Every structure is written in structure tokens, then in C-alpha cells.
Amino acid sequence: MHFQHSADIWRDFPELVPAAIFARGITADVSLDDRLAHFGEVAAKRLATASEGELPEIQAWRRTFSRMGLKPTQYRCASESLLRRFRKEGALPRLHPLIDLCNAVSIAYAIPVAVFDLARISEYVEVRYAAGDETYVTFGGDTEHPAPGEVIFADAAGKAHARRWTNRQSGLSAIRDTTTDILIVAEALHGSAREDVESLTATLSSELIALWPATPEYVLLRPSTPRFEFTP
């Protein structure tokens, strides 16, 4: 399998800094309360001096959404949505240990982190512009078709595993109790994106090793090396 961004995405967003992690051996029976508390404290400290919309990581995604023709306060990147909820409620909902970990790291870095169950993905994941005939399954089970030109995460079967780039993932490839092999993607476009995404990826990989019998493989991607290949 492989993960990549299309040449069109690299052309249109040259400031993009993505990273991908592959790991196997994930289970739903680990405890990570202390780790979640730590990342929550990091996020709370940042939010004590600025709202999520003032953070450079979020501002960069808002500019990107505007360039895509989306209202950035109507369609928010995943990390902004999580930070808003965390600021209002003081905590995030607990769903699955892996999702909880990725969400906690996402708010600590203010960078969107997507995680996919590879058993639900056909051959590859590519971030690209939609043709308009792809299918997207909501968490409620409804089927949608992304508009032509929308940035999606697509596989070889024409399934859209995320819509509006970092706005919303699909229920089809969501992590569940039976998940074992996973792909994690982090993407940023702000000024210190490379250093921050590298730190996020190293942190998340270390957490995976500490919590599960996993040996993660990860890479920072760039236009000259846009593809991450791995074997589930």
C-alpha cells in the first residue's frame, strides 16, 4: 500500500508539510489517562494566551480553506474543531485509545491528525482533487458525493475517506475495536511546519511504541519524495 499527495496538491500548496505513520498491532484495551492529561495541559497552556483561531497553525489552515472556496468559520480543520471543543468543555470525548491519543496530540500541536483503519482502504490513500464520482460514507451511514475539485483522501476503489481535506473523515475507515493496522497522517502549512510536524510525528511514534506492541514506520514527505510505501 502507499500514501501520497497528488502533483496538483503539491503545485497548489507548496508550503504543505505532511507526514505519515504506519503501525500494526493496535488494540482497544490500553490505558492512557496520564498521556491524555499531559497533552491536554499543553493545549490548555496555549489557549490561555490565545484563542484557537489566533494560533499560526490554525490561521494557515483557515487561509487554505479560503483558497479552496470554503468559509473557514463554517468548515474548520479537524484540529481547530477539537481545540474549540476542548476550550469550551475542558476535555474531549473518549472514543478509542488510538483516536483519543491522536486527538490529544492534535490539540497539543494544533495540527490536524487523521487516522485510518487500513482494513477498510483499497490499495492506497491519495490526497487529491475529487472527480465528483467518489463516494463518502458519513458516521451516520449516509452516502455523499464530494463535489468535483474538492480536496479528498481517496483510495483505489473511489472511496473518499475524508472530505474538504482536513475537515471531516469518513465513518467507513474510522478506527474501531477490531482495528489492528493503521495509517496516521499529519499535515501543516504554517511557517514552522516542518519542525513542528517532525516533532509531532516523533512524539506520536514514541507513544505508539509505549502503548502497543508496535514498531511504527514514518516519514516526512515532500514534492521530491511524495510517496510513503508500507506493507500491512
Score class of each variant (00 low, 15 high):
2 H>A: 03
3 F>K: 02
4 Q>V: 00
7 A>R: 15
11 R>V: 01
16 L>P: 01
18 P>M: 04
18 P>Q: 08
23 A>V: 07
27 T>D: 07
29 D>Y: 09
30 V>K: 12
32 L>P: 03
36 L>T: 10
38 H>F: 13
39 F>M: 00
39 F>Y: 15
43 A>V: 13
45 K>R: 15
47 L>Y: 07
50 A>I: 00
53 G>P: 04
54 E>C: 08
56 P>T: 00
59 Q>N: 07
62 R>C: 08
66 S>E: 12
69 G>T: 11
69 G>D: 02
72 P>Y: 12
73 T>N: 14
75 Y>I: 14
76 R>H: 09
76 R>K: 12
76 R>D: 00
81 S>Q: 14
84 R>E: 06
84 R>C: 10
85 R>M: 13
85 R>N: 05
86 F>V: 01
86 F>W: 06
90 G>C: 11
93 P>K: 03
93 P>Q: 04
96 H>P: 14
97 P>F: 03
101 L>D: 09
102 C>F: 00
103 N>V: 03
103 N>Y: 06
106 S>L: 12
108 A>E: 02
118 L>E: 09
119 A>K: 06
122 S>C: 14
122 S>V: 01
126 E>K: 13
127 V>C: 14
128 R>M: 15
129 Y>F: 15
129 Y>C: 14
130 A>I: 14
134 E>V: 10
136 Y>N: 12
136 Y>E: 09
139 F>S: 04
140 G>H: 05
140 G>R: 11
150 E>L: 12
154 A>G: 02
154 A>H: 01
158 G>K: 05
158 G>H: 02
162 A>M: 07
167 N>G: 06
169 Q>A: 13
169 Q>R: 13
170 S>L: 05
173 S>Q: 11
183 L>P: 09
183 L>F: 08
184 I>T: 09
184 I>G: 05
187 E>V: 09
188 A>R: 02
191 G>H: 12
193 A>P: 01
193 A>L: 01
198 E>D: 09
199 S>N: 14
200 L>R: 02
200 L>Y: 03
200 L>H: 03
200 L>M: 05
203 T>S: 07
208 L>K: 11
209 I>W: 09
212 W>L: 05
214 A>N: 09
217 E>D: 06
217 E>H: 06
220 L>E: 02
220 L>H: 02
221 L>H: 07
221 L>M: 08
222 R>N: 15
224 S>W: 05
229 E>W: 06
229 E>T: 13
230 F>P: 11
230 F>A: 07
